Amino acid sequence: MTPHQLSFDLPVRPALGREDFFVSPANAEAVAMIDSWETWPSRKLILAGPTGSGKTHLTHVWAALSGARIIAAADLTDADIPALALSPLAIEDAEQTAGNRAAEEALFHLHNLSLAEGHTILLTAERPPHLWPLRLPDLMSRMQGTLVTQLRAPDDALLAAVLTKLFADRQIAPSPDTVPYLSRRIDRSFAAVREVVETLDAAALAERRAITRAFAAQVLDKMV
């Protein structure tokens, strides 16, 4: 057992730079849209995808490119809307405004004011806007009139890359055969990848064990 393979209770620091984002067929279209942000129709885009698919990472990449501010949709009702509209803006989890009259109205006014000021808007959500249960008709029409790009379910290369990145974010170096083994065993979803890495980290910390293929197999058997 080598010291660098042990799991330690260290802060999780996600790497959110453009160079840290692994491009595969599952996300290549979305990455291309972020890179070409100055050509978005009507200066707005919705980035849709499941939890853990890379929406937050790409949002930070876009913010670095455009100089945008980032705000959670849940914070819009308490935000200074005119001030937010003075620069490019990323609104995370925009779908969560649905059903909340005040939040929907805040998003509607921010959308209109930002575009009127000549700025660009990126919105993220788990689903395309036609699936959001919005109650404000004017907001619904604005969202459904926005170009959507989607992050797809992970292919083999992306699954392995996300596993590697999440281990690195936790400053963990598993044995070389661990990631290929996990890629073959776990459910093919971003949620499953995150759950497995979190569970392995906690188990390795509790048992003071290195994360190896054998240890991963033991933990997966317990999870099943």
Rank of each mutant, 00 (worst) to 15 (best):
K55H: 03
M143A: 14
S175E: 13
D187V: 08
P154H: 11
L220E: 02
A204Y: 05
S189D: 08
E198S: 13
L86S: 13
T146A: 03
F167M: 05
K55G: 07
V61P: 01
V179I: 15
A202T: 14
N100I: 12
I46R: 00
V196S: 02
M143C: 13
P14I: 05
R194D: 11
A94G: 15
F108N: 14
T97A: 10
H4P: 05
G17H: 10
S114G: 14
R101Q: 12
V31Q: 11
L163M: 06
W132C: 12
A63W: 02
L134E: 04
L134C: 09
A26H: 03
F8P: 03
D221T: 15
L86G: 10
E19W: 00
A125P: 09
D138V: 10
T149Q: 04
L6C: 07
P154D: 07
L139I: 04
R185D: 03
S189N: 10
R184T: 14
S141A: 04
A191N: 07
P128R: 14
A116F: 02
A83F: 09
V162T: 07
I121V: 14
L122M: 14
P3T: 08
R209T: 11
A30E: 06
L86M: 10
P82W: 06
L200H: 03
A90W: 03
H109S: 08
I46N: 00
A216P: 04
P50A: 02
W40D: 09
A48T: 07
R142K: 02
V179Q: 01
I91A: 00
I211D: 05
V196H: 01
A85R: 04
A216C: 15
A90S: 10
L122K: 08
L6H: 06
S36W: 10
Q96F: 13
S42M: 15
D75P: 00
P128H: 12
P14T: 04
H111L: 13
L139Q: 02
Q5S: 10
V23F: 08
R188N: 08
H109L: 08
E105F: 08
V196R: 04
R208S: 14
L65S: 06
L205E: 07
E195C: 11
R101H: 06
A85C: 08
Q144M: 15
R142E: 03
E198K: 15
M143Q: 04
D201N: 06
A168I: 06
H111C: 13
T199M: 11
E38W: 05
A103L: 00
T51N: 10
L123F: 12
T124W: 02
P176T: 07
L166V: 09
A192I: 07
A214K: 06
D169N: 11
H60W: 05
L220A: 09
F108Q: 09
R208M: 03
D155K: 08
R135Q: 15
A168V: 04
S87N: 01
I172Y: 01
Q5C: 11
L151H: 04
